[in-house]
Design a protein around this nucleic acid. Structure first.
Ligand SMILES: [Mn+2]
Ligand SMILES: [Mn+2]
Length: 315
DNA sequence: GCTGAGA
DNA sequence: TCTCAGCAACGCTCG
DNA sequence: CGAGCG
């Protein structure tokens, strides 16, 4: 008799034993279980947001230590923004106009969406800074702190604290998360108000304020050459169509790291940007007293970019 | 992971 | 029936 | 404008 396929959240899994992370021998089945477990944590941060995906249907590859920094080797992973109808699952498909014309994006609607993503080899979930259908007015500001190799953890943590201070002075409550890579994200949820142009300009100004505070430690210029020994304050996540790694998303890197919301106080402890993984995050979640991002939803209703913009010093 | 062309 | 090649982003910023 | 970047 024919083998009955495993089904999770009404999504049928093909090749559940497929290894996605070879070094840790993490399978598709384990990825499905991970997202099912963290669904209550991740869903508030991804529901309704257009997503871009990093897919590695055959796994991340044997020698994949860094993201995909390997050179000669062909990258087994690829970005996917506009999956067609051959990408099944309980999603809402939304049409968004880009430079080349109307295109279709997926949005996550339920835990089954996460199962379907895992089935399709999606190892990273990247989200827009706005939510369907109000996609022209951002509801999430992201400051991506990218440290050069010689930057210490203390310096990185201090950068995040400074970012928090600058935002706080403009009336914005902010939150910090690890990325699962080398850096941190400082994010501010906002009620939709201003459009992308005003919001991206505001975020650029915030980055410039941070750089002015300590030009020897920070840069707001993207080129790697100008980052030597510094922390790049990447504000370009706040442009229409740009994305950032979703909280609780796995990363397509060795060890199966995950992006994790932290309490600010944790920056003084043992945590590092790549501390948490698909394997050890469940233990952290079980031990938590409450959401490390307590007050996040409330902040996202109470504060707006428009008000913060009005508090910027005159240029 | 999926599709379609070709053996 | 099977195997395998092709496919799967986009837009800003810098120089 | 092309290259680099995420
Ligand atoms: Mn980063
Ligand atoms: Mn970055």
């Amino acid at each position: 008799m024919a083998e009955r396929p495993e089904v999770v959240n009404a999504v049928a899994l093909t090749h559940p034993e497929r290894i996605y992370w070879p070094r840790e021998r993490v399978s598709k089945r384990e990825l499905v279980a991970y997202y099912d477990l963290v669904a209550p944590w991740i869903l508030p941060h991804v529901l309704g947001r257009p997503i871009s995906m990093v897919r590695c249907p055959g796994g991340i590859g044997e020698l994949a230590t860094g993201a995909r920094e390997g050179r000669t080797r062909i990258d087994p992973c690829f970005f996917h923004k506009h999956p067609g109808e051959d990408f099944p699952g309980p999603f809402e498909r939304v049409t968004i106009v880009e430079s080349a014309g109307p295109t279709e994006y997926l949005t996550i609607t339920e835990a089954g969406s996460l199962t379907a993503l895992a089935q399709m080899g999606v190892l990273e979930i990247h989200v827009w800074g706005s939510t369907w259908p109000d996609i022209e007015r951002p509801d999430l500001l992201v400051f991506d702190l990218d440290p050069d190799a010689q930057i210490t953890w203390r310096e990185l943590a201090n950068a995040a604290r400074l970012c928090r201070e600058v935002l706080g002075a403009l009336g914005l409550k902010s939150f910090v998360k690890t990325t699962g890579g080398k850096g941190l994200h400082v994010v501010a949820p906002v009620a939709p108000s201003a459009g992308w142009e005003d919001v991206s300009e505001f975020c650029r100004r915030v980055a410039e304020i941070i750089v002015e505070a300590a030009p020897d430690r920070f840069t707001a210029t993207m080129s790697k050459a100008k980052r030597t020994g510094k922390i790049y304050v990447d504000h370009v996540r706040n442009n229409r169509g740009a994305t950032s790694i979703a909280p609780y998303s796995t990363r397509a890197r060795d060890r199966a790291p995950v992006a994790v919301p932290l309490r600010w106080k944790e920056l003084s402890g043992r945590v590092r940007p790549d501390t948490y993984t698909l394997k050890n995050l469940p233990l952290r979640l079980r031990g938590l007293k409450g959401d490390p991002w307590d007050g996040y939803a409330e902040a996202g209703r109470a504060q707006t970019a428009r008000t913060a913009i009005s508090r910027l010093p005159k240029p």
